[in-house]
Amino acid sequence: MWAVLKKELKSYFLSPIGYICIGIFLLIFSIFFYLTAIQSASIDLGNLYYNTAMYGLMLIIPILTMRLFAEERKNGTEQLLLTSPRSVTGIVLGKFFAATTVVLITLIISLMYFAILMYFGTPNLVPTLIMMFGFLLLSMAAISIGMFASSITENQIVAAVITAAVLILPWFLPNINESLAALDLMNYYSKFPAGLLSATEVVGLVSFAVMFILFTVIVLKRRKAVK
């Protein structure tokens, strides 16, 4: 897992993708920082993370995850990975945590907004950390979806579109039927802004991530038989 993780991180930052993702992420953060903190003179960062998650993730995650497996498949380097004595699960986890690390780096940089607020007042650190933790879990769930989309196609754009669709469409589903609201990842993030760490939400997000990681492993193993 570590070998793949290291190499994937290297690839993120040897190509512009890593920088573009972090850059756009921070731009969105900054806009919402202005809207939710500066404009309304609030020292509460809950809304900052919530809004960025809502509008940022569906933009960033598809770009971050689209290349994970699609690129390997297109270039044939998948052959190198899958004929190595590494386990498929290890390879998938390595890629998953590489993408997660990029989000984590952004989150650590986002602590600067907290530092800025400290100049104006005394913001509360614990709810902010809880909010960040929730943000990370939410990103992991979204990354696993993106990774799965990337594993089923060799076209990166197709992977990105599928991911974006899966992340955006659930917004409108509750209008059709209330029970479909469970498909919306943002639902699992609604209690975090209040500084609450709810087991239901944590378990919900983690199981989402685990489920799509498993799907990815199954797809890769299954392809051996079909290919």
């Binding site: 190499k7 290297k10 270039n75 044939g76 190198l80």
Partner: peptide, 24 residues
């Protein structure tokens, strides 16, 4: 493999090292 798949963004040394890591 026939198609000579390589990670083009890596240097030769990095690639061989990565393959070594993959090969345990």
């Amino acid at each position: 493999p026939e198609s000579v798949p390589l990670y083009e963004e890596l240097t030769v040394k990095e690639f061989v090292r990565y393959m070594a890591e993959l090969k345990l």
